[in-house]
Nucleic acid binder design. Structure first.
Length: 872
RNA sequence: GCGGGCGUGAUGGAAUGGUAGACAUACCAGACUUAAAAUCUGUUGGGGUGUAGCCCCGUGUGGGUUCGAGUCCCACCGCCCGCACCA
């Protein structure tokens, strides 16, 4: 007797697909195109279940669209520049390039057995000069188009290693290697003028109907359009040249509640003062400690320093407000200075309480409410409030009205003007690192900053570098750095900063349309293949990557590399959840040897009485809802649904799953248990269940194939009705990304088919349809069943089955009957029975009669085909 | 701190505002077997009761809208993600 053997089946069909070249995308006028793209991976060296889930979802769409008759483009590549390669270089003494290319080989070998319908002839790697030379060419175009400029910006500086740190390399305000307290430093860096497109990127969000609402909302908030008042306080005793302090506020209606002015530690006045005042210098130095992330700044303790400078209130020049340097004010947003209104901002409230500043309410919830506040009063802007210190508009008005009338009033009085500002900052792309795309410019003593000539591209990374000293090896590579100035020909120095890896991933989708062209894109190909019809990736990219890609597509259009129709490159977006796994944890008392554990060089020592031990899933045996060690039998704690992480030993390797159960099972399971947008917990029992089910389907097909050709049976109509329902339900589910629901339907239909006593002809039709419906998820098994039943050609290219509405209809329906919304019974009625007859039948139901108890119902609601509700 | 999301049996989850718990796991019971595995079948939200029946409660908590709310609105609690140099 034969049985389901995935290893044999999967190898066979992968070879068949490869030989037939059915996944190779070729431009064709005769078919509509469909471009499906999953966010390309960083080549870390191993694929993980998250990749499997991401690419399986994309593959389901790609294979489904192929069966629907589309000309499908489904490419794959590598986001292969980045920090991890340099870390590997430092730890293992291996060149980042060698490490990266080896990882690409390894990961490709791990992906192949999963049977994705990818066009590998279009493979790209962003770290290859074939890719990044075009990025350099576009960079030069964008400089010329005025989309790129240089300015000073702040970075994390490790004073011991003398190097710039990424945010990720800062742990609790210290450098991860040196353990030194991180400082902020200013460097001249390159920027994309993304902020010029704030309004455009914001308003175009409305056109992205097939993006998740939450992603659009997050981008909207990130861009952060606000209308406010910009005005100046005149200073009383400020240093020369600073007789005004410009501030921006989104709440000009609270101007009479101002009790102080706050300036950023990086504000020009603060910088001026710190030169001559040691106390202020010490304070601003303190403010500059710690990481540069917004989170670090916002959660740090609020600190202020009274500069002694006073400003006059614009409406009452006799009133003077103190000017504080405050650590929570960002130089990047607004003017780097604010007025503090403690009554209506919790942060200002805490600041005022700490430094003994007045708290002056300007509006209150009611006319008789006390203006002695114990916390900031911050109602929604749409709520009507009583302005006890209003100066424009009505006494009772909403915050929004208050703001508008305040701006109008101030403009009329000549106190500032209404302005629209955005939270979005320009995109700093300079990285002081080796493993990235070199910025193709040259610094010449005579000509200044000069873009490299296009004919000199690519500016290739030098290979002979070492990572034994912290910092960027390009800085130390004199031979590479020294180059003739493209303008005057004199000896000059190359830029040693490389580009943010977000640049690489901001246009790869466009490169896939012409991956081997000697220009960044080819207009004909871009016009045919763009846009990406379905983009799939993690929600963690909801803001930065997607916003940058949207900007870059516009920049590429301006510089002639994309058609205007492609400025929103992703027509539909789907954000999928993570794959998680339980953690098995036990604790061991700490022994003499390890009472002092040192983390990095941070000089932090821990005294612990118990140490957590994380066990691999293979070391654990599950009994019911408890887990025990295989060796020793000790019970261990189960922590459910944690992100897979090496340090927690809860990573499941897809390769093991493939060798145990086959790729189809891995693909089936990652889709089956949770909705795609939510996290899915990997469980061994779930994977096994999938494997058993696939075996069951194979056995059913085997049994049907062995039936006598003319075997008659009973229930053909019923089986075919269920088949058409399954086609309908599964198709709808795939269209709406309800893969888990699709799989539930497939389970149900399989159970029906298994029990069916229908004729061979009907059963054969049913199992072939089942295989087609399963083919996007489990393509190898589907091909095998198709072949077993004598199907023509490959199932991958067979037309998708169509549900016949007429054959799906049931003759009778069961309607639940509710009384006052509670279910009290049900009736079977013909599907097309008119409402009034259904109502009569419902009122004649014994449960209804009993509850009515002779009375008459107030109302009867009949929802045809759904429900009857009797209101009494 | 700010922004976004999620919360349903023992577990993962299903449910165009219309029978809450589809489908799967786990557990339990049964068939087959010397036995185990595999396979197949069936039960399983909680409580009450006059136990083939009927009733009450039940979707994080508290309110609201509706003939009808897991679904919509408000407040709260908990968890997860992002915060511009990780990708």
């Amino acid at each position: 007797m034969t049985r389901y053997t995935p290893s044999e089946i999967e190898a066979r069909w992968q070879t068949a697909w490869e030989q037939s070249q059915i996944f190779k995308a070729v431009r064709s006028a005769s078919k509509p195109k469909y471009y499906v793209l999953e966010m390309f991976p960083y080549p870390s060296g191993r694929i993980h279940m998250g990749h499997v889930r991401n690419y399986t979802m994309g593959d389901v769409i790609a294979r489904y669209k192929l069966a629907k008759g589309f000309n499908v483009l489904h490419p794959m590549g590598w986001d292969s520049f980045g920090l991890a390669a340099e870390n590997a270089a430092m730890q293992k003494g291996i060149h980042p390039g060698e490490w990266t290319y080896q990882n690409i080989e390894d990961m490709k070998a791990q992906m192949k057995p999963l049977g994705f319908s990818l066009d590998w002839s279009r493979e790209i790697a962003t770290c290859h000069p074939d890719y990044y030379q075009h990025q350099q060419a576009m960079f030069i175009d964008m400089i010329e188009a005025g989309l790129i400029y240089r300015k000073n910006a702040i970075v994390n500086w490790d004073p011991v290693d003398m190097t710039v740190l990424a945010n990720e390399q800062v742990e609790q305000g210290r450098g991860w290697r040196s353990g030194a307290l991180v400082e902020r430093r200013e460097l001249t860096q390159w920027f994309f003028k993304i902020s010029d497109y704030s309004d455009e990127l914001l308003s175009a969000l409305d056109t992205l109907e097939n993006w998740p609402a939450k992603v659009r909302l997050m981008q909207e908030n990130w861009i952060g359009k606000s209308r406010g008042l910009q005005f100046a306080f005149s200073t009383v005793n400020a240093p020369d040249g600073h007789d005004r302090i410009e501030v921006y506020t989104t709440r000009p209606d609270t101007l009479l509640g101002a009790s102080f002015v706050g300036i950023s530690p990086d504000h020009p006045i603060a910088k001026l003062l710190e030169r001559d005042n040691a106390e202020i210098a010490a304070f601003t130095a303190e403010c500059r400690k710690g990481g540069t992330t917004e989170e670090a700044i916002e959660t740090a303790e609020k600190l202020g320093f009274d500069t002694g400078i006073r400003v006059r209130h614009p409406f009452d020049t006799s009133q003077e407000l103190p000017v504080y340097i405050a650590n929570f004010i960002l130089m990047d947003y607004g003017t780097g200075a604010i007025f503090g209104c403690p009554a209506h901002d919790q942060r200002d409230f805490e600041f005022a309480t700490k430094y003994g500043l007045p708290i002056i309410a300007t509006y209150l919830p009611s006319e008789d409410a006390s203006d002695e506040l114990t916390e900031a009063y911050v109602p929604p802007k749409t709520e009507k409030v009583f302005y006890n210190r209003g100066f424009a508009g009505e006494q009772w008005q909403t915050g929004l009205e208050g703001i508008d009338t305040a701006i109008e009033f101030c403009e009329a009085q000549g106190v500032g003007q209404g302005v629209t500002k955005f939270r979005l900052r320009d995109w700093g792309l300079s990285r002081q690192r080796y493993w990235g795309c070199p910025i193709p410019v040259v610094h010449c003593d005579d000509c200044g900053v000069v873009p490299e000539k296009k004919e000199n591209l690519p500016v290739k990374l030098p290979e002979d570098v070492t990572f034994d000293i912290p910092g960027n090896p390009l800085d130390r590579h004199t031979e590479w750095r020294t180059t003739p100035c493209p303008s005057c020909g004199k000896s000059a120095l190359r830029e040693t900063d490389t580009m943010d890896t977000f640049v690489d991933s901001s246009w790869y989708y466009a490169r896939f349309t012409a991956p081997h062209a000697d220009t960044p894109t080819v207009m004909e190909d871009a016009e045919y293949w763009m846009n990406v019809d379905q983009y799939i990736g993690g929600v963690e990219h909801a803001i930065l990557h997607l916003l940058y890609a949207r900007f870059f597509a516009r920049a590429m259009h301006i510089t002639g590399h994309l058609p205007e129709s492609a400025i929103e490159p992703f027509d539909a977006l789907f954000t999928q959840g993570m794959v998680t796994h339980a953690i098995y944890k036990s604790t061991k008392p700490v022994t003499m040897g390890d009472t002092e554990l040192t983390f990095g060089n941070t000089d932090v020592t821990f005294e612990m009485t118990n140490r957590p031990i994380f066990h691999y899933p293979e070391e654990v045996i599950l009994k019911g809802d408890k887990a025990f060690l295989k060796e020793g039998g000790e019970e261990v704690e189960i922590i459910p649904s944690a992100k897979m992480s090496k340090s927690k030993n809860n990573v499941v390797d897809p390769l093991n799953i493939i060798s145990d159960f086959g790729a189809d099972t891995a693909r089936w399971f990652v889709l089956s248990d949770s909705p795609p947008e939510r996290d899915v917990e990997w469980t061994a029992s779930g994977a096994e269940a999938g494997y058993k089910h696939l075996g069951r389907v194979w056995n059913i097909s085997d049994r049907i194939a062995a039936m006598d050709e003319n075997a008659a049976g009973t229930g053909d109509d019923d089986l075919l009705r269920q088949m058409h329902k399954a086609i309908h339900d599964v198709t709808m589910a795939i269209e709406s990304f309800g893969f888990n629901a699709a799989i539930a339907k497939l389970y149900a239909f399989t159970a029906i088919l298994q029990k069916s006593k229908a004729s061979k002809a009907a059963q054969r039709k049913a199992v072939m349809t089942l295989a087609q419906l399963m083919s996007p998820m489990t393509p190898h098994l589907a091909e095998d069943i198709w072949a077993m039943q004598g199907g023509e050609g490959l199932i991958a290219t067979a037309p998708w089955p169509v549900a016949d509405e007429a054959m799906m209809k049931d003759d009778t329906v069961t309607l639940p009957i509710q009384v006052n919304g509670k279910r009290r019974g049900e009736i079977d009625v013909p599907a097309d029975m008119p409402k009034d007859e259904v109502e009569k039948l419902a009122l004649a139901h014994e449960a209804v009669i009993r509850i009515l108890d002779g009375g008459t119902p107030k109302k009867v609601i009949v929802v045809p085909g759904r429900i009857v509700n009797v209101v009494v």
